[in-house]
Amino acid sequence: MPTNATEGRVQGKVAVITGAARGMGRATAERFAREGAKLVLNDQDQGPLDDLVQQLENIGAQAIGVAGDVSSEADIKRLMEEAVSTFGGIDILVANAGIIPEADLASATVDLWDHTMAVDGRGMFLSCKYAAAEMVKAGKGSIVCLSSISAFAGQKGQAVYGPAKFVASGLTKHLAIDLASHGVRVNAVAPGTIDTPAVAGLGKDGIEKVVSMHPLGRMGKPEEVANAILFLASDEASFITGAVLPVDGGYLAQ
Rank of each mutant, 00 (worst) to 15 (best):
Q44P: 04
Q44D: 12
D45E: 15
D45Q: 15
Q46H: 11
G47T: 15
P48C: 13
L49K: 01
D50M: 07
D51G: 13
D51W: 12
D51Y: 11
V53P: 00
L56I: 06
N58W: 06
I59W: 02
G60Y: 00
Q62V: 02
A63D: 02
A63Q: 01
I64V: 14
I64D: 05
G65I: 02
G65K: 03
D69F: 11
D69W: 04
D69M: 06
D69E: 12
D69H: 12
D69Q: 11
V70M: 01
V70Q: 01
S71N: 06
S71A: 15
S71Y: 08
D75L: 07
D75S: 14
D75C: 08
D75K: 09
I76M: 10
I76R: 00
K77I: 11
K77D: 02
R78I: 12
L79K: 00
L79G: 01
M80E: 07
E81W: 04
E81S: 13
A83H: 06
V84S: 07
V84Q: 03
F87M: 12
G88V: 06
G89H: 05
G89K: 06
I90H: 01
I90W: 01
D91K: 12
D91C: 12
D91Y: 00
D91Q: 10
D91H: 10
I92A: 06
I92S: 03
L93Q: 02
L93M: 11
V94C: 11
V94M: 08
V94W: 05
A95R: 00
G98K: 01
I99C: 08
I99E: 02
I99F: 03
E102K: 13
E102Q: 15
E102Y: 15
E102H: 14
A103L: 13
A103F: 09
A103V: 11
D104C: 05
D104T: 08
L105F: 14
L105G: 09
L105W: 10
L105D: 15
S107C: 11
A108R: 03
A108I: 10
A108V: 13
V110S: 13
V110D: 08
V110A: 14
V110L: 13
L112P: 03
W113M: 06
D114Q: 14
T116F: 04
M117L: 15
A118N: 03
V119A: 05
G121N: 05
G121P: 00
G123N: 00
G123F: 06
G123S: 09
F125T: 08
L126S: 01
L126I: 09
S127E: 12
C128E: 06
Y130C: 13
A131G: 08
A132Y: 00
A132S: 09
A132I: 05
A133E: 08
A133G: 04
M135K: 06
M135E: 03
M135V: 07
K137D: 10
K137H: 10
K137G: 08
A138Q: 12
